[in-house]
Design a binder for these strands. Sequence first.
DNA 1: CGCTGCCTTGAGTTTAATCAATTATGGTGG
DNA 2: CCACCATAATTGATTAAACTCAAGGCAGCG
Lengths: 244, 244
Amino acid sequence: MSQNSCLVQKLSHYVPLNPRSRDNITRLERDERDYGKGTEIHREGQRNANLYVVKHGWLYSYTDMKDGRRQIVEIHHPGDIVGFSDIAFDTCTTVLRAAEDVRLCPFPKKDLDDVFRDAPQLAALLFALAVRNQVILIDFLQAIGRMSARERIAYLLLDLMARLRITNKSMKTVFRLPLNQTEISDVLGLTNVYVSRSFMALQKDGLIRRDNGTVEVLEEEKLVQLCDFVDRHSRVDTSWFPAG
Amino acid sequence: MSQNSCLVQKLSHYVPLNPRSRDNITRLERDERDYGKGTEIHREGQRNANLYVVKHGWLYSYTDMKDGRRQIVEIHHPGDIVGFSDIAFDTCTTVLRAAEDVRLCPFPKKDLDDVFRDAPQLAALLFALAVRNQVILIDFLQAIGRMSARERIAYLLLDLMARLRITNKSMKTVFRLPLNQTEISDVLGLTNVYVSRSFMALQKDGLIRRDNGTVEVLEEEKLVQLCDFVDRHSRVDTSWFPAG
DNA sequence: CGCTGCCTTGAGTTTAATCAATTATGGTGG
DNA sequence: CCACCATAATTGATTAAACTCAAGGCAGCG
């Protein structure tokens, strides 16, 4: 059961989990639910009783503005826990939407109190990951605040690759990108039109190739140079954790 | 001793602290150090052994790009804990700089393991606050990704006010803003020149007034309308916390 | 075969950046 | 107290990046 858990796989990437921690994770994944592409799993302002472990498929969280502008603030992949960022509030701060067909394991927020009481190691790891997410967000903030359109796209592609490589060690330079250009523009603070132009430009320069919803990074090093990319995903510091 | 701790004050704002939690906080604040305006307390890439509780003064964290562009990603006020966002890494991801003369309480990262082992309530609160910070960051991401210059400035002013009101209940609409326009531009992803123009515009429209490093918000409601502001600071959901 | 949704491309516009003076402002030492 | 200096803020003129609006093309699908 927990053998095929992406969450265990993702967390084990960082620190060997003790049995108590594994038990707690298994409890978090006891339910499963499927949602079709485009479904809103929860809306801004709704009471949020649940968090979700992602089993299959991509999702994203976004915020709307009155006049229709929108900003996607996080992309969620298999193995991620969705909803941390709302844990401090009693209503959701963002809308969660399935970018394609997905399978999730919902679990109540209240389950976390067991984790904090019984499994300090896992609590510390969740804390570290939540905080790591924040650093990733900070990197994005820098990208959106200070980079040109093509740099932002480079950044996004490298960030996605780094994340996908954690749970898929065999991945090289080709990956599926199940987001349309309007969605990408909402991630990067651009317009769909300009995303298209920038993509074409990167392609013309031979840095990437696209084919029907997949992207191939041809010149990873050049992309890294282009946007000063730093991989925050592959390692976290566990030295301060309470002993297992 | 802990009576005059801004950290206790800030945390107590959210949940009554039990004696064990208070003891742990007092330990975190046992050292004090002063730093002059402009000091770099730590640099990107440095080994980060410490976190800091802010006693007096404002600081900010920023990241540099090779070509000199810079993005300020967080502003720190008295009562804040600085360094959470680096806890997951063994080196700092941002530069921490004193915006004015400041007093800090450094404490080693390793002290957090006591908190996780002994004080689950405090651990949960720190977790909630770290995650709340993330939501604030998300709001900023939206501001920078999708708002015009004047909207961004409105957003920043309202955000600062909401934060300052937590530890200073008597604050109405006037506050000190110890950041120059170049720093503000680095917060908002603009240039110093455009910050100046946008400030002038807001002032001409009678929404704010400035005087020698202080800002007065004259039309708070209009500013809120202008940028769709939501206060994330005044409350956090503590319902899921382990019992005190 | 014709929709529909998505991507691409072109033309014109707008916002904010850049470059360059000029004007406060505050602090310092004579 | 005042002259001087450095720093910060304002303003103007020009440029560039990205947006908007609009049209056309392509692929997948019923």
